[in-house]
Design a protein around this nucleic acid. Sequence first.
DNA 1: TTTAGCACTCTTCCCCCCTGAGTGCTAAAC
DNA 2: GTTTAGCACTCAGGGGGGAAGAGTGCTAAA
Lengths: 348, 348
Amino acid sequence: MALDNRKKEVLQAIVDDYVATCEPVGSKALIDRHDFMVSSATLRNDMAELEQMGYLEKPHTSAGRIPSDKGYREYVDSLMKVDHLSDEEGQEIKEKLSVSFDEIAGLLKAASSALADQTGYISLAMTPKLTSSYLTQLKMLMIEPGKVLVVVVLSAGVVKNRMVRIPDFLTQDQIAQISNAVEQGLSGMPLSEISLITVATAAKGNRKVELPDPLLNQVLYEAYTAIKQADNLDVYMQGKHKMLALPEFSDTRRAQGLFDTLSHDGLVAGYVDEVTKQDEKKEYMIRIGQEITLDGLDDCSFITTTYNVGGKVAGNIGVIGPKRMEYSKVISQINFVRMMIDEKLKQP
Amino acid sequence: MALDNRKKEVLQAIVDDYVATCEPVGSKALIDRHDFMVSSATLRNDMAELEQMGYLEKPHTSAGRIPSDKGYREYVDSLMKVDHLSDEEGQEIKEKLSVSFDEIAGLLKAASSALADQTGYISLAMTPKLTSSYLTQLKMLMIEPGKVLVVVVLSAGVVKNRMVRIPDFLTQDQIAQISNAVEQGLSGMPLSEISLITVATAAKGNRKVELPDPLLNQVLYEAYTAIKQADNLDVYMQGKHKMLALPEFSDTRRAQGLFDTLSHDGLVAGYVDEVTKQDEKKEYMIRIGQEITLDGLDDCSFITTTYNVGGKVAGNIGVIGPKRMEYSKVISQINFVRMMIDEKLKQP
DNA sequence: TTTAGCACTCTTCCCCCCTGAGTGCTAAAC
DNA sequence: GTTTAGCACTCAGGGGGGAAGAGTGCTAAA
């Protein structure tokens, strides 16, 4: 049985009302707040059918209805209208991102902060994924004898550094020779193809490097681990504490479950990755309630989208809020922030 | 009126019991759980006096007593015995910090993580304070024309980097000349003394630098801001979500107030600084309940201590837990972690 | 100074009942 | 066939009233 027009309107109205009030919606209230040209009894019949089809549920017999996950799904897939951001709001976000960022980390932090402020929910922003990055530069800088700072620059503007130890009789010149050789050999190579072997090949194929093998290997190993470590996703998450103000998390145990999961950046990053793969071609990805395979997020919805660096798919930004969130608003906010990031990253 | 011996014992027993159960302690329960050689009536008299003196309070007439802030204060100042950490616990912490850290940030993150795990409360670790740091190195690395990575190395092992923009016709050599000149001129200078003027003096006093003034100034300005930015304290905080499991925060509004404040790193860092100055000579600093001048921490206690780098006072680590915490245990844990950090930082 | 005894005070829990919002069903109206 | 009015029914939530129980403070005796 398909949804006729009125049923769609009813479902939409119920979602809208429930989002606004967080209270089960009854037939009477529905009539009061919307211009249905039928009686409450008719709506009751519709609501009963919507419930039977799985779009609505009842907390208990004598309460109104609330949307089920399936109901929300129908809502976001075909009922809601994604509206444009108001000019003021766009302006606010723009201002927050107006500073110039020469490192992608700064931009993402600001984006996540703006998103959290604007939505009132949890925001996250992740550095670009390794699969789409390649090495552009590798510098080794002697800080003191035996201690070297390895600076790894990836495409997409990611800069990471790591302090490593090397034998303390090596000179800055020797180190520089090695890093130059490795940089020349590997620059432009996708991170996924870089291995201890390719690093060694790059260094040893270069005539300028004059160092006995065991020593060289030791340095190369450190360089290699520094590169590999650079592909770790960084996750910037903000606004967690705002969830405590929501009635759905007034029970601390729920909040605890949520926060527990969210404190593991890796879990969240992995999940976002998975979702991105599943919905590859979509402009934004939405997961609702039980659809989310992370513990403690049953009462949440998760909206993510992908920003681009130099026209290529790169990293993700997203928002985690209650299932009962203003989907269309959050989507337009998240889209706006994505566009801003894209724009800033297009002009390198 | 001073506290006689039995009153001290009574106060101590009440704090211990209340810490363990989070329930008001009555005279009967006290007799049951401890070996007082007197009757409950006698204890009642003592408790009434302790209350009058301000060490105890009653939630309501027919409940037992709970310690007041003053009671806790007396407890930590003169009643509790700081015991040593059990060998297993020391071992656990040691293991968590056993990896070698070549950058102080990594060590502090690990320390904060270990502290949060071990205490079950909120831990924090802060990078060394600027007042005790001086510049040891300044490197400028051209990433691409017009984009330079400024690497600032401070004493105490703090390494920071920042991407800046410069006119895009400048060469790596020119940039290196400038950074070398600045480094030579400023190395060893306390951060607090570095200003735009000292930076300029350092560069312009060096014969090797050949660049028209306006251009040079532009580069120097970027170098200067990078240095200044390097003295920002980083705060690593972990274990926040564990507070939600405590009965004192089962009311989400309290938790919200706490988290709100804690989400402002700067506030916390500033407070720790203030406390450190007040209790300069102490091995560890304790603030209890209302003594804490941060919003939302009325039900918390705050224990901090100071770690050293190369024998000099440096940064802080600390724990935020409920007033009702196991002070002696937390103190020994925090002390142990501090010792571990000191040790790791002594041998550079 | 300590103790036993006792009256008193509150909170907490449970039970019960009432209220009101909301439902589902039926039969009539359109 | 769809819509509506009417009505009986359900159930969460709130308020009141005890009863239980933990704990207190006070008094008078040891």
